[in-house]
């Protein structure tokens, strides 16, 4: 029984990473209606910027804020320069664009900062949290930040004019344009916000997985899985999905015989697909009813 609770706690701790990433994924999905495959690399690049600032002697929180602003600007610029001209291209062309972006960012980061593993500081410290050996204060801090972020996003989307306009632009672009919303800039804003949230995720994850250009590969896969499991239309679902995936993964690794680290990912994914087959919109996703 103690093993079970311990594994669940450990699962929640890793789940916080996935939840953070899933939140960024859902953000951009709400703004542009696509999954951005380059999201993880964008987050990785932001984290490297933060690291570089700190190397230059900037204190943690200033570097944090500067990275947030730079990532936001970067996201907007990428949208304006790369994806606005492709607005009318087929969806699959967009996906190819994401893959191109992935390759470029990964390669540039590798050349600039090379592929050696770097330490990334944590603002929360890494002592055991409340006497538990399984969750450190950093992981607890990460869970806290994710929840605060979720709350802020909820207020932004529900109670501000811009949030409402963004939701309108994503769900019904034509009608939104008719009531005077600048839908094109709403998409750019969505990119900026997703990049900023991604950078927070990156900076929180980096102390755990260490900083290097390929650090996001595995995390992004789990982030996608978590977002899809929770339902791509629901930020709340994304966070719950993230924690669930973390717990699943740990329990599968412990209780199913013959499952080493290698098979954890396929088993987690298989479980998610089973959930999807029963509930095709994810756990908290809204079913979009199509008019025939």
């Amino acid at each position: 029984m103690e093993l079970l609770t311990n594994q669940i706690l450990a699962g929640i701790a890793t789940g916080a990473i996935y939840a953070c990433m899933a939140l960024a994924v859902v953000m951009i999905y709400q703004a542009i209606d696509h999954l951005n495959f380059a999201q993880g690399e964008m987050a990785m690049f932001s984290t490297f910027i933060a690291w570089q600032l700190m190397q230059w002697g900037v204190p943690y929180w200033w570097a944090f804020l500067a990275t947030l602003a730079l990532s936001f600007a970067g996201g907007v610029i990428i949208e304006r320069a790369l994806f606005k001209p492709l607005a009318n291209a087929p969806i699959l062309t967009h996906v190819a664009g994401f893959i191109a972006l992935f390759a470029i960012i990964n390669s540039v980061a590798g050349l600039t900062w090379d592929f050696t593993i770097k330490q990334f500081p944590t603002p929360f410290g890494s002592s055991p949290f409340l006497g538990s050996q399984l969750i450190s204060t950093h992981q607890a801090g990460m869970i806290g930040v994710t929840l605060v972020l979720l709350l802020l996003l909820y207020f932004f989307f529900q109670f501000t004019r811009v949030g409402l306009a963004m939701r309108a632009a994503a769900t019904l672009p034509e009608s939104a344009r008719l009531v005077g919303i600048n839908t094109s800039w709403m998409v750019a804003l969505g990119w900026g916000m997703a990049a900023a949230i991604g950078s927070i995720a990156g900076m929180l994850i980096a102390p755990v997985v260490f900083l290097e250009p390929n650090m996001m590969g595995g995390v992004l896969i789990y982030g996608f899985a978590a977002a899809v499991l929770g339902g791509l239309t629901s930020p709340f679902g994304a966070v719950v999905g993230g924690f669930l995936v973390g717990i699943f993964e740990n329990l599968a690794g412990t209780y199913i015989p013959g499952v080493g680290n290698e098979l954890k990912l396929p088993i987690a994914l298989a479980l998610i697909i089973t959930v999807l087959v029963v509930k095709p919109n994810g756990l908290f996703g809204r079913a979009i009813v199509k008019r025939v």
Binding site: L82, A96, G97, I99, A100, L101, F102, A103, I104, N106, S107, V108, G110, L111
Partner: peptide, 10 residues
């Protein structure tokens, strides 16, 4: 090489 590949693709 990754960046060049991505640029060609774009």
């Amino acid at each position: 090489s990754g960046a060049v590949f991505g640029a060609i693709l774009i």
